[in-house]
Amino acid sequence: MSQDQSLPFIYTFAAAPILMEAPKRATKFAANDEWGKFYRKAFGAEKMNQSLSILTGASAGATESFVVVPFELVKIRLQDKASAGKYTGMIDVVSKTIKNEGVLAMYNGLESTMWRHILWNAGYFGCIFQVKELLPKAETKRGEIMNGLISGSIGGTVGTIVNTPMDVVKSRIQNSPKVAGQTPKYNWAWGACATVMKEEGFGALYKGFLPKVLRLGPGGGILLVVFTSVMDFFRSMKQV
């Protein structure tokens, strides 16, 4: 395959994660905000604390997973070497999956995806709250940005540490097509974790951890700063 031919090929496989990012991030923060209001009212708390931040983040993660699962399934099946040759692109994955496995197959791996996002968001938002409490109060816009980068990066790193095993088994579950009368080897999250540890050792649950944490650690800081800046911009526009 020539270099010119390889570029469309690469972007074909990148389409699913690219299309997923906007609704995923929007759902994450919108759900976190709404769950925060709900839990503050439910527990009679005037403002957030770390326990509520963890609970709110976990609930936002569960909500976010419903948006993410179909995109993740398409991405996993296109990226996996064993199955990539079966499909020509995103639409082909969706079409063949529904035709061969049924509409609900687009939500294969929902349980493991929920655990992945529950753990990441709980770690992310819980750490953001605690780290911001420990950092000196920002007196300038630059200081607010730095605090956001630091707290978000630490939150992204902790979230990645606690959720990587679920990310590993989620990929295996979603890449296991359902066959009538057969129970997939990787069927549900915690059982899949046990299978991986038994057959490959505990370290196998952290395959790909380094590139993931290098992306999601700093990415968590950038994400928080961008979200905060965008929300500040819209608030200022609303007041005009």
Rank of each mutant, 00 (worst) to 15 (best):
S2N: 13
S2L: 06
D4F: 07
S6H: 08
L7I: 15
T12A: 12
T12L: 03
F13V: 14
A14G: 00
P17M: 09
P23S: 10
A30W: 11
G36E: 10
F38H: 11
F38Y: 14
K47H: 09
Q50H: 04
Q50T: 14
S51Q: 11
L52H: 13
V68P: 00
F71E: 05
V74T: 08
K75C: 03
R77C: 00
D80Q: 07
K81D: 14
T88H: 03
I91V: 11
V93I: 01
V93G: 06
T97C: 06
I98P: 03
Y107L: 05
N108D: 12
G109H: 06
G109V: 00
G109P: 05
M114H: 05
W115D: 01
R116I: 01
H117S: 11
F125A: 07
G126T: 09
G126C: 06
F129D: 12
L134F: 10
P136N: 07
T140I: 08
K141H: 04
I145E: 01
I145L: 02
G148Q: 02
S153E: 07
G155Y: 05
V168D: 04
K170H: 03
S171H: 06
W190H: 11
A192Q: 03
T195S: 15
G201S: 10
F209P: 06
P211Y: 03
R215V: 04
L216Y: 13
L216T: 06
G217D: 02
G220T: 09
L224C: 04
V230C: 00
